[in-house]
């Protein structure tokens, strides 16, 4: 049975890793705002090089971070250039490919969208790779996020790998019993139901016991809760978080001033 949580966190002893989870969240939030609100076609790429890459390098995770970004971005970027580049209605052709042609406007749009998308996914990946999920949830629950949400997030990370394993076991078992999982669409669709049933019903029976186990451990108790895990915060980081928030608001303000189409 798998005991690794469903998370791509990479433990490292870096300055980035040691930051308070909220500081990391603020950094990633700022990067996300840059991706979503920077105007023009190329500024997001500049932000990727000047903000995301240095942070990933500081965290010592570049060799695993870059392939992950590429793997996620590639299908979207390829699709973008194909769909919007080749089929832009009434665009100016710049390059002919048989009956199709690449349009100037489509390519510009694809470049702009790809930059935005890459910033969005690399921000999230940066957070995932450098932040312990339990530390992040603890920081959030200290700042008003309900404890139950923290429970749900962390429990999910540990349950998912077990369900993936269970799903594969059920798939193999059904196949060895002669269930057809290849063939036409209808056959494959019909194969799905015997797979879903044991997965859902089997786990539903366990839910009662898991709820009882939580109640026994005073999960439902009101009043202040404490934590074994310690978070280290510094006044400097608090200042940085406020500055990042202001900078994010400034970027949004700038974009609104320029107009959303800019």
């Amino acid at each position: 049975m798998s005991s690794t949580p469903f998370s791509l966190y990479i433990p490292r002893d870096s300055g980035m890793h040691r930051l308070h989870p909220l500081t990391k969240l603020a950094l990633v939030g700022f990067a996300l705002i840059l991706g979503l609100f920077l105007p023009g076609d190329w500024l997001t790429y500049l932000a990727f090089v000047l903000v995301i890459l240095p942070l990933a390098a500081w965290a010592g995770i570049l060799p695993r971070f870059l392939p992950a970004v590429l793997k996620t971005a590639l299908p979207i970027v390829v699709s973008l250039f194909l769909v919007q580049g080749l089929f832009w209605p009434g665009g100016t052709p710049i390059f002919h490919l048989g009956p199709l042609s690449l349009k100037q406007e489509g390519v510009t749009f694809a470049i702009r969208s790809a930059g935005r998308f890459i910033m969005v996914i690399s921000s999230f990946l940066l957070l995932t790779f450098t932040t312990r999920p339990d530390g992040l949830m603890l920081a959030l629950s200290r700042h008003g996020v309900p404890n139950s949400i923290a429970y749900v997030m962390l429990a999910t990370l540990q349950i998912v790998p077990r369900f993936q394993a269970k799903a594969n076991t059920i798939l193999d078992a059904q196949r060895s019993r002669g269930l057809e999982t290849e063939g036409n669409l209808f056959i494959r669709l019909r194969a799905l139901f015997p797979l879903i049933q044991p997965l859902l019903l089997g786990s539903i029976v366990d839910i009662e016991e898991r709820a009882i186990a939580l109640e026994v451990r005073a999960f439902g108790r009101a009043g202040p809760k404490t934590s074994l895990l310690m978070l280290h915060d510094t006044p400097a980081q608090r200042v940085v978080r406020w500055l990042l928030l202001l900078a994010s608001l400034a970027i949004i303000g700038w974009r609104v001033y320029l107009g959303l189409a800019a």
Binding site: A155, A213, R217, A218, K225, L229
Partner: peptide
């Protein structure tokens, strides 16, 4: 509980609550 990643933290869960 599923909400803690180590045995020590698992034992701590009730005390934290």
């Amino acid at each position: 509980t599923g909400a803690r990643f180590t045995v020590r933290e698992e034992v701590a869960f009730g005390l934290e609550n």
